[in-house]
């Protein structure tokens, strides 16, 4: 289909636009810093977002199957799942990808092809939500497990170790 040729021609500007839009969901004061996407170790968030988006766009262009999108989506969503976002914000960057693609190619693309592409991107949003839930659940799982793994807690239950209680305090 012609639209994918069009996409691959505009690959770099699409990626940059997606990245800029995604960065714009962060507080203004940190944006300049996050936009610095080359410092892999001293700016891991900017780096991860950029490369996740890059891989997603490439997979869209290559028309890969849905499950191939899981790794790059996980990269991004795993970061956003522990940041200061509500669920809709955390996964909503998919719509920013859609917006970026639309705004850059709508003039040249055929209507039917464009509609088809955009509705395919919608399915990524559903996938993203599944991934978000997976990592949120992982957080809660880790919270619960940590409580269990901290053996002292169990030992305390069995009266092997003790806690300050009121009777000790009174002495």
């Amino acid at each position: 289909m012609e639209i994918y040729d069009l996409l691959s021609k505009k690959r770099n500007s699409i990626i940059d636009k997606c990245f800029d839009l995604t960065i714009s969901t962060y507080p203004e004061q940190s944006r300049i810093f996050l936009r610095e996407r080359k410092r892999q170790f001293t700016n891991p968030v900017g780096y991860t977002l950029y490369h996740g988006i890059e891989r997603i766009i490439d997979k869209i262009i290559a028309q890969e199957s849905l499950e191939n999108f899981i790794p790059p989506l996980e990269e991004i969503i795993r970061v956003r799942a522990v940041q200061d976002f509500i669920p809709s914000e955390a996964v909503g960057f998919i719509f920013l990808i859609k917006e970026a693609i639309y705004s850059l190619i709508y003039k040249e693309a055929k209507y039917n092809e464009l509609m088809d592409l955009l509705s395919r991107i919608d399915s990524l949003a559903l996938l993203a939500f599944d991934i978000f839930m997976k990592y949120r659940e992982k957080i809660y799982d880790m919270k619960a497990r940590e409580l269990r793994d901290r053996t002292w807690w169990i030992l305390k239950k069995y009266n092997i170790i003790s806690e300050i209680d009121d009777s000790i305090l009174e002495k």
């Binding site: 203004e28 004061q29 940190s30 944006r31 300049i32 810093f33």
Partner: peptide, 8 residues
Amino acid sequence: VFDAKLRY
């Protein structure tokens, strides 16, 4: 002036 985080 131009770096938002410094402006802040």
